[in-house]
Design a protein around this nucleic acid. Structure first.
Length: 468
RNA sequence: GGUCCCUUCGUCUAUCGGUUAGGACGCCAGGUUUUCAACCUGGAGAGAGCGGUUCAACUCCGCUAGGGACUGCCA
């Protein structure tokens, strides 16, 4: 709220996969920090020891670095800060803004039922108990929240949200085993990490009010809040596995480029006028939390594909070659010497129609095939006597062709068809089969160029000698 | 049940009370064409409903309906 430098953070919990919504939240935090010249931090919320695993932590690191949004400082692990959390609770106890609650699980359950029936919030009888009434049994520490008045969240996305304090319960700060709960840990960590802007999913909007009370109980100033709507599946329900993908890693495996994801995710819930395609510099220059849309957005595969295609067409062929090679390897495609170079030279001819690098991998196979190519049934059908003779003459034309590029070969093909007195339609399909062996391939000239003169002539010779 | 959030073309969105409600993806039609794409041109397509405030409402307010979140000693 002041002119302090902005500090944002992403605080995922390592529970197995990193949801794409978490990735977008990270993106927005990153964009806002960059936009304001502030810092963007990462904190791993691993206080749930049962679910947190090292592998799950790695998933978060991998997902974030794949997306290209690196934190400005080394990650903080929440579990390692337990002593700080405990100290904060001790402070609250001392200040009288927290109390020990000795309710048994059964009593709590009964109170919960009663409270719900009466349409009110759970209240503990220990809230006003004298300190020396303390029985000798396990207890939790609860926030002693105000019973009346209101708590206002001046949210940057949702606007002014007012909560009646009577509707806010005394949340648990420390569990029976002395470990801190999420709401306490978040407040303590955010405060001590110097976080100025908490930008997170709007499933936390209610928590913001209660966390504000904790800030007050500690005598601290709450951060600026910004609650982002969630990302839904194409059908408007919560995004889940059955929508095709949910985790960041899955998008990577499906052949999406990180810059395409960044552009697409940025456009989900935020926008800058009519701009659809923009790079990181533009996004950083334009981004402001205040422009984030308050309503949930649905994941639109068509649009993601469109953007991914755009970025595939922009990418360095060498980089795409590496990506495609990795995909082919995972399909047990045996690599040969020079394949990587071949890929880089072929990719420019086949990338226009590729929505993902998976499709790019499909599109490139025709060029990697080794002679002699197996002829498809369709190819055999097309190669009748007449066509065979014609391709023979075309082969001789190619043999004398010096400049082997797209414009020249297009001219050659047209000229040849003319000299034969037929349309290209009489030649193209058969030639395509001969060159590609029935695999998807670019247009004729593109196929010839990406194959190279020697390979093209070789494949022609193979086909023409077949059944002589 | 209680508290809170959300609601413009199929989808993502623009619109700071006055616009023929704009763009993008997708869709449809046509063009180009040797396949599939890509590409070019054109087209259809929206303010959830009902009240109110105002000279004027998609925009402000209220109600209803429909989605969603929270209501855990999970985060």
């Amino acid at each position: 709220m002041s002119d302090k430098p902005v500090v944002t953070r992403i605080a995922p919990s390592p529970t197995g996969a990193m949801h794409i919504g978490t990735a977008r939240t990270a993106l927005f935090n990153w964009l806002y920090a960059r936009h304001t010249g502030g810092k963007y931090l990462l904190r791993v919320e691993d206080t749930d020891r049962e679910r947190s695993t090292e592998a799950a932590v790695q998933v978060i690191f991998d997902g974030l670095s794949w997306l290209g949004i690196e934190a400005d400082e080394t990650p903080v692990f929440q579990a390692s800060r337990a002593d700080r959390h405990a100290a904060a609770v001790a402070e609250m106890l001392a200040r009288g803004s927290a109390y020990r609650d000795f309710m048994t699980p059964d009593e709590l359950e009964a109170e919960r039922t009663a409270a719900r029936a009466e349409g009110r919030v759970v209240r503990s009888p220990w809230r006003e108990a004298a300190p020396n009434d303390a029985p000798d049994r396990p207890f939790v520490v609860r926030l002693k929240a105000p019973l009346d008045g209101e708590t206002v969240i001046d949210d940057q996305v949702k606007g002014r949200v007012v909560f009646q304090n009577k509707d806010l319960d005394d949340l648990i700060l420390l569990r029976t085993d002395g470990t801190p709960t999420y709401n306490l840990a978040v407040v303590v960590d955010d405060h001590e990490m110097g976080v100025t802007h908490v930008i997170r999913g709007d499933d936390h909007l209610n928590n913001a009010a209660r966390q504000t009370l904790i800030y007050q109980g500690l005598g601290w100033t709450p951060p600026v809040w910004a609650h982002l709507p969630l990302i839904h599946g194409p059908d408007g329900t919560k995004l889940s596995k059955r929508h095709g993908a949910q985790a960041v890693g899955e998008f990577a495996d499906m052949g999406y480029l990180p810059e395409a994801m960044r552009n697409y995710l940025a456009k989900l819930g935020w926008g800058h006028g009519d701009d659809e395609i923009f790079n990181d510099e533009q996004a950083i220059a334009w981004f402001d939390i205040k422009d984030v849309v308050g309503a949930p957005a649905r994941l639109d595969w068509d649009k993601l594909n469109h953007l991914n295609n755009h970025y595939i067409r922009l990418a360095e062929p060498g980089r795409l070659a590496d990506l495609v090679a990795a995909i082919l390897k995972s399909r047990d495609w045996p690599p040969h010497d020079g394949d990587l170079e071949k890929l880089a030279s072929v990719i420019p001819f086949v990338r226009d129609g590729a929505k993902t690098t998976l499709e790019l991998a499909d599109a490139v196979i025709f060029a990697l095939k080794r002679r002699p190519l197996a002829m498809s049934d369709k190819g055999k059908e097309l190669l009748n006597e007449e066509t065979r003779a014609r391709l023979g003459r075309l082969r001789d034309v190619y043999a004398t062709q010096g400049v082997w590029d797209v414009p020249s070969l297009e001219a050659v093909n047209r000229g040849f068809a003319e000299s034969e007195g037929v349309g290209l339609g009489k030649i193209g399909p058969a030639l395509r089969q001969v060159l590609s062996g029935g695999s998807p391939a670019p247009d004729l000239a593109g196929a010839l160029v990406s194959l190279g003169k020697d390979e093209s002539l070789g494949r022609l010779d193979d086909a023409l000698s077949l059944g002589g």
